[in-house]
Simulated scan of single mutants.
Amino acid sequence: MTAPTAEAPTETGALIDHILSRYHERHRSELPGLLDLAEKVGRVHATDQQSPKDLAQSLAALGRELEGHMAKEEMILFPAMRAGGGAGIGPPVAVMRAEHDDHAEAIERIRKMTGNLTPPDHACGSWRALYAGLDRFLEDLAAHVALENHVLFPRFERG
């Protein structure tokens, strides 16, 4: 994983724009294809003991959580941050941090159910493509969370 701060702008508005374009847009564009592939692999390999059961459902649940989370950031948190924050920004930041913890747990569940995204020797091309795509997606999501948790949010948290 690349250090998320390496490519991040320092000014808050530019940082938010970076998060929106680099992470939010990418998550929204990549997740549907990964979900389709997970459903295909699950269907084709339903009787394979090494096929991750419930991967498509877990990925769909992560997608729903992520979409709700990003929408709250886009509609509530980021506009407040662009306006300078203020006394009431602490609770929304705390909620976003808690949701980031939920994302980390979902990532861990997906990694566990897939043997850390290691396909079995007999895996077909679709199965291998799914795991490779999921690996990139989950690394990207982790970098996104780290950038917000360690760079953006501390700017608005009072010690």
Results as ranks from 00 to 15, higher is better:
38 A>P: 13
147 L>H: 00
96 M>F: 03
158 R>F: 05
157 E>I: 15
5 T>I: 00
11 E>A: 14
64 R>A: 14
5 T>Q: 12
38 A>Q: 01
89 I>E: 00
69 H>Y: 06
112 K>M: 07
28 R>H: 12
136 R>N: 13
71 A>L: 15
117 L>N: 00
67 E>M: 09
18 H>G: 02
149 N>G: 00
38 A>W: 06
154 P>R: 09
20 L>K: 13
130 L>Y: 01
29 S>A: 14
27 H>G: 07
126 S>K: 01
9 P>Y: 06
47 T>K: 10
35 L>K: 10
74 E>K: 01
49 Q>K: 14
103 H>T: 06
109 R>F: 02
45 H>C: 03
100 H>K: 06
15 L>Q: 08
143 A>L: 00
56 A>E: 11
107 I>D: 11
155 R>H: 07
62 L>S: 10
83 A>F: 01
127 W>G: 05
101 D>I: 02
125 G>S: 07
115 G>I: 01
20 L>I: 14
114 T>H: 10
8 A>V: 00
46 A>T: 03
149 N>Q: 00
17 D>C: 04
49 Q>A: 15
159 G>H: 14
87 A>V: 13
64 R>L: 13
104 A>F: 05
44 V>R: 13
117 L>V: 02
157 E>H: 12
27 H>E: 01
106 A>Y: 09
90 G>H: 11
149 N>D: 10
67 E>F: 09
5 T>L: 06
78 F>L: 03
99 E>Y: 00
157 E>T: 13
12 T>I: 11
71 A>K: 15
147 L>V: 01
50 Q>V: 10
16 I>D: 06
141 L>H: 02
119 P>Y: 01
102 D>A: 15
136 R>Y: 08
41 V>L: 04
101 D>H: 11
124 C>T: 04
110 I>H: 08
18 H>S: 03
133 G>L: 02
110 I>W: 06
58 S>A: 15
25 E>N: 15
3 A>I: 04
30 E>S: 10
89 I>D: 00
67 E>N: 13
110 I>K: 02
122 H>Q: 04
141 L>R: 03
64 R>T: 15
116 N>T: 13
91 P>A: 04
39 E>V: 14
132 A>P: 12
111 R>C: 10
14 A>S: 15
75 M>S: 14
28 R>M: 04
36 D>K: 05
26 R>C: 03
99 E>C: 06
97 R>P: 02
97 R>N: 11
76 I>R: 03
158 R>T: 15
50 Q>R: 07
42 G>N: 07
48 D>F: 02
51 S>Y: 07
111 R>F: 08
97 R>T: 13
93 V>P: 01
3 A>K: 06
127 W>A: 00
121 D>K: 07
59 L>G: 08
126 S>W: 01
58 S>W: 11
51 S>L: 10
156 F>G: 08
50 Q>W: 04
4 P>V: 02
